[in-house]
Write a protein that binds this DNA or RNA. Structure first.
Length: 420
RNA sequence: GUGAGCGUAGCUCAAUAGGUAGAGCUCCUGACUGUGGCUCAGGUGGUUGUGGGUUCGAGCCCCAUCGCUCACCCCA
């Protein structure tokens, strides 16, 4: 016997009925995003490796050790996208979208890939629903993006979600802070862990969100970014907070929220959820005012978020999942000597009317067919018997009420719709 | 990449101190020749993740490997 092949580590098959849930979530996203004027963009799963090196950042964990990178047959270095913002910005630049009315508002839904050790809420192929807005620097734009995000999550039944918010300042603020932090930590170098010592050279800001209690203790006397913020960055952050307050958005300032992608500037945010264990962030995002230019485009600001769809579905409120309807509410069953094709014929007529119908074609007994219909969650069974066939009648059986009646075919659609 | 726990039927799990694999659910059939949800009877389904070792004998012990799960790390 040949070896059975299994799905690759960290990847999953999504089977019915769970796939209905995924579709429903994605439809909700499309509907809500549409009300904010966002259009869908689909970018390739495969990109030139350099795209991520330049945008996400060489010193980040994502680029340093989590990418699916390989050489193609011509020796080009390609990478399965570990996130989607870089691709969206690349496409924006490549197609000259800056020449269309700004800001550009784009959303995407699709798989992303990172070579990590899988655990709860973390997969090698995972899925993100994200949105990007390019070409508007104002804090009201940040607020609107967050309002859209929260409206979407609200439509899914989430309540009381708390947005964690911070600002990492503009390039100048960050450069100044980086030096401030470095000169504070340099004397303490020997007390830092191995990772943090390395970051002291490459990216000192990342040390801030360490989880090590000893390092947190050391950091207590560290300078804060707020002290180094440029006036513009401070104004921007204050403007965002005023807007969020006006719309009643619940948020908390999380000064140590830094985020692991290099392209973020100013506004950064996260939403975490209970019930996900250690991987509890369901949304992450922020502003990236230098990224478009970094990727060869014009000097345009941008902001976006990415929702972890796998994690989102893991903690989806029950009232949403329960509202996702069952399939095939009607089953057509041939009785006695009536050929299966008659059941197919009737099913086709009903489908043409827009009804979800399955036909019993396998020749099983009426009894077995009803049993199967019942277990599948069907609401109605239509029995085509020899006795009624000649007179243009069928038997309509309500599987929940357990009663049935004989109805003319002409009235069938109306009767079915009445019951459903 | 590091650590820990776990891999027996499609699913959930059994298998006394190593003695040659079983149940429930699911699925199919029948009791009920054109009528389901209950009950009863029967059937399909496993080289115990894989490879090696110890042993007269391994699902059980040892090693390796793959996978799953959780945590570290990182992030969605």
């Amino acid at each position: 016997m040949p070896r059975a092949i299994k799905s690759v580590k960290g990847t999953r098959d999504f089977l019915p009925p769970e796939t209905r849930l995924w579709s429903a979530v994605e439809e909700t996203a499309r509907r809500v995003f549409d009300t904010y004027g966002y259009e869908e963009i689909r970018t390739p799963v495969l990109e030139e490796t350099d795209l991520f090196v330049r945008s996400v950042g060489e010193s980040t964990d994502i680029v340093g050790k989590e990418m699916y990178t390989f050489l193609d047959k011509k020796g080009r270095s390609l990478t399965l996208r570990p996130e989607n913002t870089a691709s969206v910005v690349r496409a924006f630049v490549q197609h000259g979208l800056a020449n269309q009315p700004l800001p550009a508002k784009l959303f995407y839904i699709g798989p992303q890939f990172r070579y990590e050790r899988p655990q709860k809420g973390r997969y090698r192929q995972f899925h993100q629903i994200g949105a990007e807005l390019i070409g508007d620097p104002g804090p009201e734009t940040d607020a609107e993006l967050l309002l859209m995000l929260l409206r979407f999550l609200g439509e899914l039944g989430f309540r009381d979600l708390l947005v964690q918010l911070n600002t990492v300042g503009d390039d100048e603020s960050r450069a100044a802070y980086r030096e401030g932090l470095r000169s504070f930590l340099e004397p303490l170098r020997q007390q830092l862990g191995e990772d943090s010592r390395r970051r002291l050279d490459s990216n000192p800001l990342r040390i801030l969100d360490t989880k090590s209690p000893e390092e947190r203790e050391l950091l207590k006397g560290a300078p804060e970014l707020a002290e180094f913020l440029s006036e513009e960055s401070r104004d921007h952050f204050d403007g965002l907070r005023r807007a969020l307050d006006r719309f009643g958005v619940a948020y908390e300032i999380e000064p140590r929220l830094v985020r692991g992608l290099d392209y973020y500037t100013r506004t950064v945010f996260e939403i975490i959820s209970e019930g996900l264990g250690a991987q509890d962030a369901i949304v992450g995002g922020g502003r990236y005012d230098g990224l478009v230019a970094e990727l060869g485009g014009p000097e345009l600001p941008g902001i976006g978020f990415a929702i972890g769809e796998d994690r989102l579905i893991e903690v989806l409120p029950e009232r949403f999942s329960q509202a996702v309807a069952a399939s095939e509410p009607v089953v057509v069953i041939p009785v006695g000597e009536v050929p299966a094709v008659e059941a197919l014929d009737l099913a086709e007529r009903l489908r043409a009317e827009g009804l979800a119908v399955s036909a019993e074609l396998s020749g099983r007994s009426v009894k077995a067919a009803l049993k199967k219909a019942d277990r599948s969650g069907a609401r109605l069974a239509i029995l085509i018997g020899e006795e009624e066939l000649g007179e243009g009648l069928v038997t309509l059986r309500d599987l929940k009420a357990a009663d049935q009646s004989t109805v003319p075919r002409a009235d069938l659609v109306a009767r079915v719709e009445e019951i459903l």
